[in-house]
Simulated assay, not measured.
Amino acid sequence: MFTPRTRWLGFVLLLCPSFGCATTSGGVTLRADGTPSPQACPEDAKKIMRALQLRIGDSAWIELDANQIKSTPITLYDGPIESLLKEEFGTLETTTRLYGQVWTGGPQVVIRYYEAQPPASEKFPICAVVRLSENNLRKRPESKPGTAILEFPIASVDVVDAFR
């Protein structure tokens, strides 16, 4: 039996081929401090986010690293990351996975998400970022280059229309 949410997600996934849903985090240049430069959100991601009722500025709580759930502190590395929604996000249900990229070069961690994958579904493009709140993305002093030791395993993820 299909719930309204399942039907809605199925509709969005049917739209994916027509929007060219392949997205990538490649090609991002870095600023002098090691943080990523601005990057546009692809139009296909914006269309899919609207269909999923994800509006610019919407936020939800996530487990930063699906491999370190409830660990404290956690260590993040430059490169790909898989995070997990802890609550509903637009029409996305809890346990939806978010896939993105981590940069640890600056004074705090930068995380951008480019794809989402609800349980038992296909990946599709999104544009979202982890926001700095109460210094939860500040690296601990003992963090080595290419890594970031963070005090907290959870953070807020926000929908964006561009990465700044």
Rank of each mutant, 00 (worst) to 15 (best):
R97Y: 06
Y113E: 14
E115H: 06
P36T: 11
V102Y: 08
T104L: 03
A40F: 05
Y113V: 12
P17S: 08
D65W: 02
A128C: 05
L30A: 06
W61R: 13
E115F: 05
K144R: 15
P73N: 03
V102Q: 09
I81L: 15
S71D: 14
T95R: 11
R131K: 10
G57T: 02
L76W: 05
E122T: 06
F124T: 02
N136L: 14
R140N: 04
L76G: 08
A22I: 12
S37L: 11
D158T: 04
V157T: 06
L54K: 04
Y99R: 08
D33F: 06
L132S: 14
I111V: 15
E87G: 10
M49E: 11
G27R: 00
L13W: 01
V130Q: 06
L9H: 02
T147S: 15
G90A: 05
T35V: 04
P125T: 11
K123T: 12
L92W: 06
I48H: 01
A51S: 12
T35I: 05
A40Q: 07
L76Q: 02
R131Y: 07
I48G: 00
G57A: 04
L132R: 09
C21E: 07
V102M: 08
I149K: 02
T6F: 08
S18C: 07
L9D: 01
V159H: 02
L52H: 06
C16P: 00
N67Y: 02
S83L: 13
Y113C: 10
S156I: 09
P125R: 06
V130G: 02
I81Q: 03
R112Y: 03
F163K: 03
A66W: 03
W8N: 14
V110E: 11
Q53M: 10
D44F: 02
A40V: 10
L14I: 00
T6N: 11
I126H: 07
P4M: 03
L132M: 13
P145K: 11
W61F: 12
E115I: 02
A40H: 02
K86M: 12
I154F: 03
P145F: 08
Q101M: 15
P36K: 09
I69F: 00
S121I: 01
I69T: 03
G105L: 00
R97Q: 15
L15G: 12
L92T: 10
T29C: 07
T95I: 00
P141G: 14
E88P: 06
T24N: 08
S156L: 13
P119L: 13
I81P: 03
T96I: 00
N135E: 12
I126Y: 10
T29P: 09
L9E: 11
L54S: 12
R31A: 14
D78T: 08
G79F: 01
F2Q: 15
G34T: 10
L9P: 01
P38K: 07
K123N: 09
G57F: 05
T29R: 13
S143G: 05
E63V: 05
G26Y: 08
D65N: 13
P17A: 06
G27A: 07
G10R: 09
G34N: 08
R138N: 11
I81N: 04
L76R: 01
R31T: 11
P36H: 10
